[in-house]
Simulated scan of single mutants.
Amino acid sequence: MSTDNMNTALATDTATSEVIRPKISDYRRHLLICTGPRCAPDGAAQDLFDSLGAKFKAAGLNDGELRVKRSRVGCFAACKGGPVMCVQPDGTWYYNVTPAHMDRIITEHLVGGQPVQELVFHQGPTGG
C-alpha cells in the first residue's frame, strides 16, 4: 500500500470511529504515589498504594465531598526517601510514607485539611 493510500485509510478509519469521552467521578484531592523501583526498591510504595482502598473507605474518602482519587506514577525524579507522594491540588509533597505515616496523612491532611509538616519535603505554589 502506498503512503497516500495508507493516509487515506487512516483518515477514513479515524473519521468513522467514534471516540468515547472518559468519565471520572468528582473528587477533592488526587494522591500521586511513585511506585518506581528507584523510589522504594523493596515494593513498599506498591504495597502502600494497594492499601489505600481500604484506608480511604474507613476514613470516608472513597466517595462524597472528601473523595480522594489515587494514581500510581513511575517516577517523580525525587528518588530519595521514598515512598514519595504528592497531594494535589494542594501541591504538598511527602517522603518516607510508611503505613503509619499514611494513617497520619489521611487523618490530619486528607480529612482534617492540615498537612503533616514533619513529613513534607516540598510545598508547591498552592500552599496546602
Rank of each mutant, 00 (worst) to 15 (best):
G81K: 11
D63H: 08
N96H: 15
Y94E: 05
M102V: 03
V87E: 10
H101N: 14
R38K: 13
T98R: 00
A78R: 10
T98L: 07
V97Q: 07
G36I: 03
K55I: 14
S51I: 02
G36S: 13
C86Y: 05
G36H: 07
N96V: 08
W93F: 05
Y95M: 15
I105Q: 00
H109V: 02
P37L: 11
P99F: 12
L48P: 06
D103A: 12
D103V: 01
A40M: 04
V73P: 01
G82M: 03
P99A: 02
L110N: 00
E108Y: 10
C86P: 00
T92F: 00
D103P: 09
A77L: 03
E108K: 13
H109F: 05
S51G: 06
P37I: 14
C75W: 12
Q46G: 12
V73D: 01
I105F: 00
N62H: 12
P41H: 12
G53S: 00
W93H: 08
F76W: 04
P99C: 12
R38C: 09
A45K: 06
F49T: 03
I105E: 00
D63I: 08
T98G: 06
R38L: 12
Q88P: 14
V68Q: 11
G36F: 01
Y94C: 10
F56D: 04
C39E: 11
C79M: 05
A40H: 02
K55E: 15
A44G: 08
R70H: 01
A54S: 09
P37H: 14
V68D: 03
H101Q: 07
G53Y: 10
K69M: 15
D63C: 04
A54H: 13
F49H: 05
P83W: 13
T35G: 13
A58V: 06
M102K: 01
P37E: 11
A45G: 09
M102F: 02
Y94V: 12
A44H: 04
H101W: 08
E108W: 13
A54E: 12
